[in-house]
Design a protein around this nucleic acid. Structure first.
Lengths: 169, 169
DNA sequence: AAAGATTGAGACGTCAATCTTG
DNA sequence: CAAGATTGACGTCTCAATCTTT
């Protein structure tokens, strides 16, 4: 940790950073292409539907949903509006607190996420999980946890990054 | 590798995937915010300028530049046009092959990337490198190499992901 | 016809401003 | 005034189509 005080990276650090960047640039495209082609969903839309599919009553408040998906509230609001226009989700004001909006999965949304899940999971397996040894899977988990402590110190996004069963359907 | 044939993820695999996703969602924002605030550049624009700053003659052909930055050609073309409008880069047709466009860093572009580098590197260190042990830095490098073999099998993007000295200035 | 590169249209994300309820 | 959420404007990316040179 903090090997030097100078603001430059060592060769080893640079190697890691360059590769991490390449992954961050390329992974979204690979995931999105399959989902869009096979189910007409972006990865983020899929994630939103998957989170709702596992929630009690298939319903979550916007803020909770934003945390689970590591998204800002404006971004989520735009996406949920489009999903609602497509009949995959419905929004309703909370009875307990008038400021709160609840998003709920419709039957059509449920059916779409159920039909999309197997292909998506196969794609994740083919492009990520199967590329790694089981030891590397564990290391990756620990590394990402360490990074997320910096990237999201408050933990407000990423919830507690627990129990996000994306297979969820 | 390929622990099961069913298209679902184990708990350990899911944990890794969920966290990797959160990193992929959050990291770009953290990097971009600093660069945009301090230097008026997106991360991708910075990367483009940095690659040019290290190249012979501070010049690269569009296709080579796209590979080094893991970008598609249309994306790079749009970005280079904007950088040229800002006077940071100039484009010129190759004399040897009329199809080829060379992009070159101007003096203004050089000065901007030089001034932007220290703050950017400090930010990368603070949010990524310093969050990890030196062992984890090595593990992350190996893991990303494994992922990139799947995400970019041809290696056309990511060049050979070697010698991308981002400090480069 | 293929390779290198550009263009324009459409979709999405971000930011700042706004609105409403507590 | 703070919290929850929405809106609109703007910038960037993606995709398909296009153009030029080989």
């Amino acid at each position: 940790m903090g090997t030097q005080d100078v603001p430059w990276l060592s060769r080893e650090e640079l190697a890691a950073w360059v590769r991490l960047n390449a992954v961050v640039e390329l992974l979204p495209g690979v995931i999105e292409t399959q989902l869009r082609r096979d189910s007409g969903l972006t990865h983020f839309e899929y994630y939103v539907l998957a989170m709702l599919s596992e929630a009690p009553e298939r319903t979550l408040r916007m803020t909770a949903l934003a945390g689970m998906t590591s998204a800002t509230l404006p971004r989520l609001s735009h996406v949920v509006r489009r999903l609602e226009e497509r009949g995959l989700v419905v929004r309703s004001a909370s009875l307990e607190d008038g400021r709160v909006t609840n998003a709920s999965l419709t039957d059509a949304g449920w059916e779409l996420v159920v039909s999309a899940a197997p292909g998506h999971v196969r794609n994740v397996r083919a492009n990520v999980i199967d590329a790694l040894s089981s030891g590397q899977v564990a290391e990756l988990t620990a590394i990402c946890d360490a990074l997320l402590k910096r990237l999201d110190p408050s933990g407000k996004m990423t919830g507690m990054y627990e129990r996000h069963d994306e297979a969820g359907a």
